[in-house]
Every structure is written in structure tokens, then in C-alpha cells.
Amino acid sequence: MRIVAKGLTYVYNPKSPFATQALKGVDLTIEEGEFFGIIGHTGSGKSTFVQHLNALIRLTGGELKIGDYDLADKKCKVLELRSKVGMVFQYPEYQLFAETVKKDVGFGLKNFRKGISEEEADAAIREALRVAGIDYDEVAEKSPFELSGGQRRRVAIAGVIVTKPEVLILDEPAAGLDPLGKKELMELLHAIHGQWCKTVVIVSHDMDEIAENCTHAAVFSEGRVALCGTPKEIFSRGDELAAMGLGVPVTARAAQIMRGRGYAVNTDFTCDDFVNKVLALYRAENAAGAPAGGTHKESAGGAGDAE
């Protein structure tokens, strides 16, 4: 499903002294199949925007279409939409409640598909847990509170993907995890993206994470989309990001400095690509045998222009 927002506005506590305009006209399109990143400070409007996507916040200004669902339409089938747009909140493991893992994962399924047979539900739960990297036979009858933190997060994610949503949105999915936990979680999201949910949207503060994983990203600032494009396009504009108080990935920062020194690396800012491009540069340098750095400016290409 394609997500199209036009001129989206939203005000918290309207008509009160505490009124704050969280969204001031958001225009954003997320194509089907993308692994989309949403970047921005706390208070930039990104959470408000994301909560619009499955009607947790009802549309009050502007247009929002998700596939065939028109959120501006009062008759829009919200429950149906929610089953197709899954939403994983921050620290989702704290929202588990049922006495067994199986019941918790099945909660959404039974809400969305009333009267689903036990066998069918069981199969779906088994499948969702498998995708989330959890062994059904081992944990299904356990209390979610007996599991480790990392396992609980996976169970919580299984509880959302169990309805096979077409779009999966995750708010800071890796928050609080240690480096390996983060890496494993991102691998899980790629697996889900490949075989389960067509579109994945993550909200993240971690620029390296965005650069490594996303096909496209949008930067929110003060209730608007300030930048939108591929990570390569976005992180080439380090100065603009800095002006918004945001950083860039290590690769982008290094590339920026190198460009200032006369070495242009035309990279998409993933670690792999950066390493390959630097190595290519090094080999070219060696082959040419010419130590001068200033002659390589012509390869600047899409890496943007710092000069």
C-alpha cells in the first residue's frame, strides 16, 4: 500500500492555553516496498505523524491516503486499516499482558478476525513467532514475563505481525538494546520486510542505523518534512542536518572531511559501500602512482558538493 500525506496538520489540546501545533503541513509519500526511515528530534512531529498512519490519531487537517483507505473519509474502516498497518511502539515489551505468549500474540489476531478457528489462529501464531525468531514449542505456553528482555521484544513484534500487515511501523525498535541486540533486531526487520510486510517504516535517532538499513528516509523538523530522499541524498546535506541539530553517520562525516581534503568518495554511506569505495580510491591511487590528492575531484558525482 502506498502512503500519501498532503498538507497534514495536527494540533494537540486545541483551543486551550496548552495548544501546540505538532504538524504544520506534512507532505510525504512512502511507496510500497520501501524500508523507510523517519528521522527527527523529540517534538519534531514524527511520532504524531506515525500515529496518523493507523488512525490512532484521527485526521483533523489535510489529506492522508493509505492504499485505498482515505483517512479523511469519516466512513473509513479503521479496524480493517489497523490490521493492515501494524504499529510497534517504543519498548513494546512493556505492553505484553496475557498469561501466555501464545495468548498475547493471538490478541490482535482475535480482535481483527473475529471467529477465527483455533487451528487457524494457532498456525498464524506459530508462523509469526517463527518469523520473529522465537521457538514456538519452547515459549508458547510460558508467561511473557518469564522471558528475557530481547525475547519479549520479539514476542511483542510477533503480536503485531501476526495479522500479516502490509505496512509495519516501528517507533525506535532498537532502543535500549545492546550493540549485538540491535544488529539482530535489524536483521529481523529485514527478514520481515523480505517475506512478510511489503513496507517497513522505522522511526530512529540513529543515523548510522538509517544509512545502513533504509531505502528512503524523511527528516522531520518543526512539524514539517525538511528533507526526503535516499539516505545518500539526505546525508550529503550534512550542513542542513547540523542546522537542525541532527548528526550524520560516521561514514558521511568522514566523507565530508575527505572531500575537503580533495578526496571525493561517491558512497551511499553504508559501511560496506564506504569501505569498497575507499579501497577503490586507494587502489586507483596506487596504480596511478601519483600521490597528488587534488586530481580526484572529478569523481565527486552524487556525493553532493561541500565546496
Binding site: 560516521v250 561514514t251 562525516r253 568522514a254 566523507a255 565530508q256 572531511i257 575527505m258 581534503r261 578526496y263 575507499v278 579501497l279 580510491l281 586507494y282 591511487e285 596506487n286 600521490p291 590528492g293
Partner: peptide, 24 residues
């Protein structure tokens, strides 16, 4: 096989790479 010095942040990384490229 690229002879770069150790680096722990982006600035040091860029320095190390540039130094290595210049030498190369």
C-alpha cells in the same frame, strides 16, 4: 590491505584514510 592507522571517530578515520592515500 590498506595501511591505515587506527581511528575511533569520524574525524580520525578521515585523517587516517587521507594520510594513507597521500602516502600511497
Amino acid at each position: 590491505g590498506m595501511p591505515v592507522g587506527n581511528a575511533f571517530n569520524a574525524e580520525e578515520l578521515a585523517e587516517a584514510i587521507c594520510a594513507s592515500l597521500q602516502k600511497g
